[in-house]
Amino acid sequence: MGERRVAPAAFRGARLRAFASTRHGMIGAVILALLAAIAIAAPLIAPYGPLQQTSASLAPPSAAFPLGTDNIGRDILSLIIYGSRASLLIGIGTALAALLIGGAVGILAGFHEGVVESLLMRVVELFQTLPAIVLVLCAIALFGSGFWILIGVVALAIWPLQARLIYGQFVRLRGREFVAAARVAGLSSAHIMLREILPNAMQPIIVQVALDASIAILIEAGLGFLGLSDPSMVSWGRLLYVAQDHMGDAWWMSLFPGAAICVTVVGFNLLADGLNEVIDPRGAAGGLP
């Protein structure tokens, strides 16, 4: 299956159908599609504005405030709806940034055997030595926490996963015949890396992008929870930061934003699971009679 150069359109259609038939993957895709719709249509569906304060502070869930209000009288439901924007943007943005960095390093290390390879992989190991959250906190302590900085910093903490994966794929494929043939044909290194090898390595990479997004969302939520995320954006983590001081008198401030994080992370993980199942249909079957 590795030698297939580029999937014909009919084959891609089959893949798509196979994906749709995995229950995991479909549930994940539906969750994410709903979240994306909510994020885009936030001003239309949110009952209140994100900064709109009402006189009812710390009000429990009711008809007027389905999920209650926070300490300064903001509607939790509306905050969660607006908060989906930050989570999804940072999740997807970071995953793509990690794909770029990890992809560049992984491809270069996987394609060039020898010094470049070992040097780059040492760099990957260096980044994996520190816990992601420590790395991120440290960077934020030194450089602040604007939206773009946040994406860059979180990507910097999680790119080694993608780099290792892509590196592994390239090492697996670089000895194959079609690569040797391309070399003999005198194609440029860039062409071989990006046009010959990369398409064959794509599927697990996409799975990793989904997983990276879920990790990034968790890290962003964690930063918000520490009060260190971008203060100008409504974020689920930040709602939990505020909730920390009201655990005794407003459980709804904790419960609902956390549940939102959870659902999103589960969505990305289910999507990744479904994609994995398509790649390797019977790979995950166990069982002992």
Binding site: G222, F225, M247, W251, S254, G258, I261, C262, V265
Partner: peptide, 13 residues
């Protein structure tokens, strides 16, 4: 997928 800090808050509550 449950963030530890949220789980912590729920356990405390």
């Amino acid at each position: 997928a449950i963030p530890t800090f949220w789980l912590g808050q729920l356990l405390v509550i």
